[in-house]
């Protein structure tokens, strides 16, 4: 195996040497070997003989003219040229746009939908309240889920209470500025079911609002409806921004581009092969 490889290598070198295709170093190296190896020299002579004999083959003249006639080839290149160029351009553009839009769909829209899917309950709530935006809360104890369902939505905001709250009753004169009294710093401990302490506010218990469930986040109080507790908020601005028809429009554009691409490609192929 190794000998065969060496033999082929020698053969290549000898053949290239005959044609003057060896570089200087390889040529000098081979010439040294040739001066010492009679078998290699004999091989070179045989190759040279074969090359000389092959070059002695007479050149054949064409037995006839091979010129083309119009019936052999359709002479329509000039007529097709503008159409070709336009079609090529349109097809290429359609392909590029299609790739960009498909990429946009996968990278951006699917990403958003994936985030929404992480909070299915929140999405359901948005769907429920999407037709009717709720008013902005007057008092906020926690960040409202603005842009619910958007990228900045924090799912944990719905599941864990942030602060322990005490709600001022509607018949008490509301302060000009909402006052938030925190008894303790933020704590991760779950809220207890014990009744709220009366110490911070001297409000009769029977007039106070029903105490919210502990796992329910109170976002604020609706001033238009007698201080009703707002548990969730869907800002009107979010309603406007909600891209309801975007995927459908995008898909339509993609279909149109795909049709242009396929039609253009097929037409180009047909025109090319008709020539």
């Amino acid at each position: 195996m190794k000998n065969e490889r060496k033999r082929i290598q020698d053969l290549k070198q000898l053949s290239a040497y005959l044609d003057g295709e060896l570089n200087l170093a390889s040529r000098q190296q081979l010439e040294i070997r040739l001066s010492h190896e009679p078998a290699l020299r004999a091989k070179l002579e045989n190759l040279h003989t074969a090359k000389v004999l092959l070059s002695r083959l007479p050149r054949q003249q064409a037995p006839r003219n091979f010129t083309l006639t119009p019936d052999m080839v359709p002479v329509q290149r000039r007529a097709h040229k503008p159409l070709f160029t336009t079609l090529k351009l349109a097809t290429s553009l359609a392909a590029i746009l299609l790739v960009i839009l498909v990429g946009f769909e996968f990278l951006v829209i699917d990403n958003l939908q994936g985030r929404m899917a992480m909070a299915p309950e929140a999405v359901m709530e948005v769907a429920t309240f999407a037709d009717e935006p709720t008013p902005e809360p007057l008092i906020l104890w926690a960040d409202p889920p603005q842009g619910l369902g958007q990228a900045e939505m924090d799912v944990d905001a719905f599941s864990e209470p942030v602060v322990e709250l005490e709600v001022a009753p509607p018949d008490v004169d509301p302060p000009e500025e909402p006052v938030l009294e925190e008894e303790e710093p933020l704590s991760d401990e779950p809220l207890s079911d014990e009744p709220l302490s009366d110490e911070p506010l001297s409000v009769p218990k029977e007039k106070s609002e029903p105490r919210p469930k502990q796992d329910m986040l109170i976002l604020g109080i609706n001033p238009d409806q007698g201080g009703e507790i707002i548990e969730r908020s869907v800002p009107a601005s979010y309603m406007e921004e909600m891209p309801r028809s975007q995927p459908g429009t995008l898909r339509l554009i993609q279909y149109a581009l795909a049709i242009i691409f396929l039609t253009g490609g097929l037409t180009l192929w047909a025109l090319y092969h008709r020539q």
Binding site: R59, Q60, A62, P63, N65, F66, T67, L68, T69, P70
Partner: peptide, 19 residues
């Protein structure tokens, strides 16, 4: 689209090509 021009090339190369 000038077929005569191409045929000039054909005439020039046809011997080599045929050989």
């Amino acid at each position: 689209g000038n077929l005569d021009a191409f045929n000039s090339l054909v005439l020039h190369y046809q011997d080599m090509t045929y050989n």
